[in-house]
C-alpha cells in the first residue's frame, strides 16, 4: 500500500429525486472511498424511509461553485431586466386568459 493515511474517504454530495418527474435535490453529503460505496452509503443515509426513486452522488471536488464575494458582480446581468418577467407587461383592460 502506497502510504495512504487512514481516513474516512472523500466527501461526496448527494442528490435525491423523491419521485419520477421531479428534479434531483441536494440532500447532504457523506464520505466514501469509491462510487459504489458512495451510492450505497447515500441509500442508507438519505433514503431509509422511501424518500427517493433515484440518487446521484458527485465528488465534492468535481463541483464548481460561484463565490459569495462575487454575488453582486456575478448576478448583476439579471438585476435590471424586469422585462424578463410577465408582470412587466400591461394588458388591455378586460383581456382574459393571458
Amino acid at each position: 500500500m502506497d502510504n495512504i493515511k487512514d481516513n474516512q474517504g472523500d466527501v461526496w454530495e448527494v442528490f435525491v429525486q423523491s419521485k419520477p418527474g421531479l428534479p434531483h435535490k441536494h440532500a447532504g453529503s457523506l464520505h466514501a472511498t469509491d462510487k459504489e460505496m458512495a451510492l450505497q452509503n447515500a441509500r442508507d443515509l438519505y433514503t431509509r424511509r422511501n424518500e427517493g426513486t433515484c440518487i446521484w452522488v458527485v465528488p465534492l471536488n468535481a463541483i464548481v461553485s460561484s463565490l459569495p464575494d462575487d454575488v453582486g458582480a456575478f448576478f448583476d446581468p439579471a438585476n435590471d431586466k424586469a422585462y424578463r418577467h410577465p408582470t412587466h407587461y400591461v394588458m388591455p383592460e378586460g383581456a382574459k386568459h393571458i
Binding site: 500500500m1 495512504i4 481516513n7 474517504g9 469509491d34 460505496m37
Partner: peptide
C-alpha cells in the same frame, strides 16, 4: 478503511 482506500487507489 485501509482495504477500501487501497481498493479505490
Amino acid at each position: 478503511r485501509e482495504a477500501a482506500l487501497t481498493y479505490a487507489h
